[in-house]
């Protein structure tokens, strides 16, 4: 009896030793990827350099940072978990209106706590809708996400006495940041504020992506059947990441309202959902910095070209999308990687 017990225990130990080894290997892999590499400082250096180089364009700069954060939240669900949505603007809009309505109707004008409120409300809506919608795939999911965003917009329009409708909530005022830094005409304060929030959000996202949870998401993206087969709680993981992404999109929306000091129902537009997707695709999905590159390049191009001719700009974006799908499916960052690989092979 005792002998067989100890044998069984040995076997269990063996298995757990195997497991431990496998776990250590996986952890090592994740840690290596999680380790910081020097090019990762580049976007932040650029952002700070922009602050000193273009002091009179800081309002625009804040917009870019907001869109980067929005694209980053989409990257989490689209790039990592492979959820194709046409209604991500819903969460951006909820965040924007949480802060907007809070300031206009409740007099809640403290900016930082507003961000938290926006994140919580958006994440909650993301959790509820995600729990229902993420059972579906393909066209059904596309339509359901799209319909959710438009329904929110229509609801806002229905209660336009409360929400301000398409005329929006203009002239919102917010308290000085942390009670110290007031809003200035050139938007310097809000640029640095947005940058700080983006940094916090980014390191949070980066941590998620390189965690075992993030690996499971990539697994779901690559082969959902296999993930089911190895017993991964697919639906729970998808709903979790969807809620997180919704919360982040909500923070982006809240920042949008705070930096602009107004908000209208157009934040829920299909255009807004499509635009952020285009940014992310052009930058490159599933690679964190694609959101930075895509959103920044898109916003700067739009700023210049749409002044020249909005028609020309729209045509150009359409053409870029078609070309990206046909020739550069992994975005601009993917092209860089390909070029890097090619150079390496060329040298050796």
């Amino acid at each position: 009896m005792a002998v067989s017990d100890s044998k069984a225990a040995e076997r269990v130990l063996d298995v757990s030793a195997d497991r431990r080894q496998a776990r250590d290997r996986a952890a090592g892999y994740l840690l290596r990827r999680h380790h910081f590499q020097w090019p990762e400082a580049l976007p932040w250096i650029v952002a700070i350099a922009a602050f000193f180089l273009f002091p009179d364009r800081m309002t625009f700069g804040s917009q870019v940072l907001v869109m980067i954060m929005f694209a980053l939240s989409l990257d989490l669900i689209l790039g990592y978990a492979g959820i194709v949505t046409l209604g991500h603007a819903a969460f951006f809009g909820i965040g924007a209106y949480t802060v907007g309505l809070g300031a206009a109707r409740l007099g809640w004008t403290e900016p930082v706590s507003g961000l938290f409120a926006a994140a919580i409300v958006s994440a909650f809506v993301g959790f509820i809708t995600g729990w229902f919608l993420l059972r579906y795939r393909g066209l059904t999911l596309l339509m359901l996400t799209l319909a959710t965003a438009i329904m929110l917009q229509e609801t806002g329009n229905l209660r336009s006495d409360f929400s301000g409708g398409y005329d929006g909530l203009p002239g919102l005022e917010f308290k000085p940041l942390l009670g110290l830094f007031d809003y200035d005409l050139y938007g310097h304060t809000y640029y640095l504020y947005a940058l700080a929030v983006l940094a916090v959000v980014f390191f949070f996202v980066r941590r998620i992506v390189y965690s075992p949870f993030g690996q499971a998401l990539t697994g779901i993206r690559e082969n959902v059947k296999r993930m089911h087969a190895i017993g991964s709680p697919v639906h729970r993981r998808l709903v979790t990441v969807y809620s997180i992404a919704a919360g982040i999109a909500g923070i982006a929306g809240a920042l949008f309202t705070q930096t602009n000091a107004y908000v209208t129902l157009t934040v829920f537009d299909f255009d807004n959902s499509a635009k952020v997707m285009v940014m992310l695709i052009l930058g490159g999905t599933g690679r964190l910095y694609g959101a930075f590159l895509g959103a920044a390049v898109y916003m700067v191009l739009e700023d210049h070209l749409s002044k020249l001719s909005p028609t020309f700009w729209q045509f150009g974006i359409g053409l870029l999308l078609v070309l990206a799908v046909l020739f550069a499916r992994r975005g601009v960052l993917g092209l860089f990687e390909d070029a890097g690989q090619y150079l390496k092979r060329f040298r050796s």
Partner: peptide
């Protein structure tokens, strides 16, 4: 799905322009 969505949205943008 995503690639089909992107290609055809691109075409729609070009058509609108």
């Amino acid at each position: 799905d995503l690639e089909q969505v992107l290609l055809t949205i691109g075409l729609a943008f070009m058509a609108i322009a």
